[in-house]
């Protein structure tokens, strides 16, 4: 049977997420929630479908922004495949040797094998700038479930597709042969190779959950209450309002050309300090150029809107945007996915 790439890359509706970076505290609950739910099996040890990294930083996999991928002038531009070392993680430790080895203090707990030099969150809280004007913020990343998924385009076995009903990008794991063209193609480097099964794998947007009306684990388990989920075309939902109406939520590296469906509300930062410790009200602590590099030029308007609306509440006024971002009731984050999973029963 013949099915075109165009068919595989299309969907009727698009599920999307918005991460409010001004609420993100880098706690890794999203990453761990995902890890415990989906990636504990052999071959998945080092896989973190969701990671949170400190920006600026080299991220995970190490230096992923320099690895290419995505589209250039509308044409797929294959990059490189991150190595196992560049991903890092998946460590096991010498617990037994320390606890029961009879070696006392001559051994301490450490990863078994060669000492790691990188991991899923190796440059945590390092950031940039100089004291006292250092700066950093947290950036959670997962598969962007792109509108023009270059991974789907690249798959020689047509094993990858966007689901018609929600735009979730999946890979038929029974069809995948582990050629890893998708890893080359993905500019966000959020696809991993399963060394046991010899297939590629990535975030599945918790589709078994959203099918049952339950928000993805990373969103529902986020204690910072910063992950909005919903359909982009739901004009009453928060995603549409934040992305399309307020335009405060913008994609990461839009220039990669894949049309990401994970959006970010860009970060504010405390006032910079002058040499004498007084407040510098003009120069932003996080350099504008850096934010533009990450989020493109639209970041400036998003930040301006955010600041203007914050000023309203600070001066005793009202702001619909602030009300939305406060999230008075937790379920407001999840659009149609507000079901409590514990209420589900099987069989």
């Amino acid at each position: 049977m013949v099915i075109s790439k165009e068919d595989l890359m299309k969907s009727e509706r698009q599920a999307a997420m918005v991460f409010d970076l001004n609420k993100c505290i880098g706690c890794q609950t999203c990453s761990v929630a995902c890890k415990v739910l989906w990636t504990r099996e052999d071959g998945m040890d080092y896989q973190w479908w969701c990671t949170v990294n400190t920006q600026p930083g080299r991220g995970a996999p190490k230096d992923w922004e320099q690895m290419g991928g995505g589209y250039r002038d509308g044409v797929p531009n294959p990059g490189i495949i991150p190595t196992r070392e560049e991903c890092g993680g998946g460590w096991d430790f010498n617990y037994d040797e320390v606890f029961y080895g009879g070696k006392g203090r001559s051994v301490h707990l450490h990863p078994i094998g060669e000492a790691p030099t990188w991991g899923p969150n190796w440059d945590e809280d390092q950031g940039g700038g100089e004291y006292p004007n250092s700066f950093f913020f947290y950036l959670p990343r997962l598969c962007n479930h792109c509108t023009r998924p270059v991974c789907v385009e690249a798959c020689p076995r047509n094993a990858m597709y966007k689901r018609n009903e929600d735009g979730v990008v999946l890979r038929d794991e029974t069809r995948c042969r582990g050629y890893r063209f998708c890893l080359e193609a993905c500019p966000y480097k959020k696809i991993y190779f399963n060394y046991a099964k010899k297939i590629s794998q990535h975030c599945i947007f918790c589709f078994p959950r959203i099918e049952k009306g339950v928000a993805p684990a990373c969103a529902r388990q986020c204690p910072g209450r910063l992950v909005f989920v919903g359909f982009l075309d739901d004009v009453d939902g928060p995603i549409h309002k934040l992305v399309r109406e307020w335009e405060v939520a913008i994609p990461l590296h839009p220039e990669y050309g894949t049309g990401p469906n994970v959006f970010y509300i860009p970060p504010l930062a405390p006032y910079r300090l002058n040499e004498d410790g007084s407040i510098d009200e003009t120069t932003p602590r996080i350099p504008t150029e850096y934010l533009e590099k990450l989020f493109g030029p639209r970041v400036n308007k998003a930040l301006d809107t955010l600041k203007a609306e914050m000023a309203k509440t600070k001066n005793g006024g009202k702001s619909d945007l602030m009300n939305m971002l406060i999230v008075y009731h937790w379920h407001e984050l999840f659009g149609p996915f507000t079901k409590d999973p514990a209420e589900l029963t099987w069989k």
């Binding site: 415990v36 739910l37 986020c222 999973p341």
Partner: peptide
């Protein structure tokens, strides 16, 4: 595995609720 229950009610009107209390340690306790 485990997951936050997220079943705290609203305490004061006009104040955000406490859900979903938890953290990465709790999410990986198992």
């Amino acid at each position: 595995r485990e997951e936050q229950a997220g079943n705290f009610e609203v305490v004061e009107k006009g104040v955000p609720d406490m859900n979903p209390m938890g953290c990465q340690k709790g999410a990986g306790w198992s």
